[in-house]
Design a protein around this nucleic acid. Structure first.
Lengths: 230, 230
DNA sequence: AAATGAAAATTGGTCTGACAATATTATAAC
DNA sequence: GTTATAATATTGTCAGACCAATTTTCATTT
């Protein structure tokens, strides 16, 4: 007997959601005001407000004090706060998150090669060269490393996969991890990036995945050491 | 300048979250009542209610009319409504979701074998036998198929991976897909299940993944046919 | 003493009206 | 035309009231 009691607020929430879909409203579009909603839906302002706040909480609407109500522009962004709570509440292990990242990256390689998606090899190489330059000039290495891996995920021609990958990444960002990387290990990463791209070009999934696995090795040994110390 | 103006409601939300963490409240624990919160936090009932509703929307609290406020027991469950919106708003392709499922399942096999987690082979076999019985007696085949795959994910010794896998599964459940399966194809699935288990037992990752890939083949061809028709 | 059931108290749901804080728009001054 | 200021619109917060659902209390019955 899992019957949901339909409160007025829930009804209003559904109506608003439908209204958004029916009117094909896009992110940052202006929505109706509280006043308009109370008049159209013929419910109290209280109910309207609670519905709006609820929809804002799950990232569908964005309420601007004094400025009106808008369609939120974050695709799956509000999941962040939920993940934060999940992370704080349940004892999430760093190792778990890294394993998931590895699954995603290896999976991306498989999708790219198996599906034979058109891939801009040159662009990947260029990103990696920027990565190298950041390494040699003490630049923002993490930025270009992230762009490289993001590009791989994007290349899978699977937007939903990319969205979830981003979620995992943001989840991962909750964890402070101080992996001190010296220049040598960074250059090794650079070489691995190139090796992965070449393997993709050659449709050599095994080689690509093997290199990616090696790419993950340092962080796994780091985690293992951390776990042993604690 | 992305400074968030801290409305009273947001402050109350943070306080309540902290309160939950500090008091180490667990799912289904009873929380404070609206009255108690208004008195403790010295804000109006309106603010308290809007904060509570917001926290309910993201799956942290559960409000029972007349019965009080409780800590919600859904780990990442409330993400569902967000995913539903995501699915309805952005044109999510079924193919994308299946590809993600494949990445997860293949990743699970890798984790199981590479990490050499202790695995109850016998139990997996038994689940699969229940699957076979369901096939031959026109029983609930989907149920046991799901249990089998769930067990594999669980066996990775990675709770977070399992949680995300469940999210994807629930996302997938949004899609109505009528893949008519005859007895023969179901029995083929049963055999593949067994083959996968045996491959795991033999630490043969390649074989396990190859079989799993074959296991996914029917649904991919089905999707391809669907896409061609539309 | 235990079980039943009605009454009372508690708790969340909705409504109304008011005023404050913020953002937008219109107006006036230059 | 631009800028500064005032007026308006919109969301934020508050208070009080009543309704609906649940829980508790307690008298009644067995």
């Amino acid at each position: 007997m899992e019957i949901q009691k339909t409160s007025l607020v829930n009804i209003v929430i559904e109506r608003i959601k439908n209204s958004i879909l029916e009117n094909k409203l896009k992110p940052n579009d202006k929505f109706l005001t509280e006043k308009e909603l109370t008049e159209q839906l013929k419910v109290s302002r209280t109910v309207v407000r609670e519905a709006l706040i609820s929809l804002q909480a799950v990232g569908i609407l964005k309420i601007k004090p004094g400025g009106g109500i808008y369609i939120a522009d974050t695709k799956l962004g509000t999941i962040n706060s939920i993940l934060k709570h999940h992370y704080e509440t349940y004892g999430v292990k760093i190792r778990e998150l890294i394993e998931i990242r590895k699954v995603i990256e290896l999976g991306a390689l498989r999708l790219i090669i198996e599906k034979q998606v058109p891939l801009d090899i040159q662009q990947l190489k260029e990103i990696n060269e920027s990565y190298l330059q950041a390494i040699t000039t003490n630049g923002d290495t993490k930025k270009f490393d992230r762009i490289f891996h993001q590009s791989l995920i994007k290349a899978t021609d699977n937007d939903t996969f990319y969205d979830f990958s981003e979620i995992i990444h943001q989840y991962f960002a909750l964890v402070r991890i101080d992996l001190t990387e010296n220049q040598d290990s960074l250059i090794e990463s650079y070489k691995q990036h190139n090796e992965i791209v070449d393997a993709i070009k050659d449709n050599d999934l095994l080689h690509a995945q093997k290199t990616m696995t090696a790419h993950f090795e340092p962080i796994f040994t780091f985690i293992k050491k951390m776990e042993e110390e604690s």
